[in-house]
């Protein structure tokens, strides 16, 4: 059984239909990529899964429960973390306080401190800057903080929205290395990316979205060599 299954999802912004009946599955331990152009609906799908946007119809089944039926703030405690597009770190809180916010639904203080130490190990830059306000960090550091903050809830699945956006090539490499290491530690990843080449090279399977519909799906390696994908998304 799939860990996360989206069935015939339809989402509207007012009268405009943004998602026109999308279905896909994420199995435990996989890295799944959702790729597509700007405005295809990738971010909307992630926001619907974590409850920030209501769906018109459809189901989002996660470990047997329909996420569309529970309030947004309760979703993270089910083991789903969301790294939003544009990082959205809390600029008026320090790096350390941002990480504490990531553990908002957890209560054991010593366990939380332990998770923070693990995050610092994964992101040594964050440890160096733990007392600094997040608003003063560079874009790359903010992305690391957003990912570290998501890991603070000890998620079973992480949804990542454009983690490489606006970063230098070296940092893009670093971000994808981190996604790889998150997968290795046993956490499932649902990755939304405009950088289709990088996303497909790291993912197990992928779905290609076009104006609210899934137009292609399959093994990431196969999609990487697919002529139409190459032409439309890889710029070859």
């Amino acid at each position: 059984m799939a860990m996360l299954e989206v069935k015939d999802l339809q989402v509207y912004y007012g009268v405009i239909q943004a998602i026109k009946g999308v279905s896909f599955k994420v199995n435990e331990g996989e890295v799944i990529a959702l790729i597509g152009a700007n405005g295809a609906g990738k971010t909307t799908i992630l926001h619907t899964v974590t409850g920030l946007i209501p769906a018109k119809t459809g189901e989002v089944i996660y470990e047997g429960i329909d996420l569309l039926k529970i309030p947004a703030h309760k979703i993270v405690s089910h083991g789903i973390a969301h790294v939003p597009e544009g990082r959205h770190v809390f600029s008026q809180l320090t790096v350390y306080e941002n990480l504490l916010m990531g553990a908002y639904t957890r209560s054991d203080k010593s366990e939380i401190e332990e998770t923070i130490e693990n995050v610092y190990k994964r992101f040594p830059r964050l440890k160096e800057r733990k007392g600094q306000y997040a608003g003063t960090l560079s874009g790359g550091e903010q992305q690391m903080l957003a990912m570290g903050r998501a890991l603070m809830s000890k998620p079973k699945i992480v949804l990542m929205d454009e983690p490489s956006m606006g970063l230098s090539p070296i940092l893009v490499e670093e971000v994808f290395d981190i996604i790889e290491s998150i997968r290795k530690s046993g956490t499932t990843v649902l990755l939304v990316e405009q950088n289709a080449k990088k996303a497909l090279s790291i993912a197990d399977r992928a779905y290609v979205l076009e104006t609210g519909n899934i137009v292609l799906e399959g093994d990431a390696a196969k999609l990487l060599n697919d002529e139409s994908v190459k032409k439309a998304y890889l710029g070859e």
């Binding site: 974590t50 409850g51 920030l52 947004a72 703030h73 309760k74 979703i75 993270v76 405690s77 973390a81 969301h82 939003p84 959205h88 770190v89 809390f90 600029s91 008026q92 809180l93 916010m101 990531g102 908002y104 639904t105 903050r149 809830s153």
Partner: peptide
């Protein structure tokens, strides 16, 4: 503080 700065991000934190 989190809600005042970024309501959606605060919801994502729970």
């Amino acid at each position: 503080v989190a809600v005042s700065e970024d309501r959606d991000a605060a919801i994502l934190m729970g």
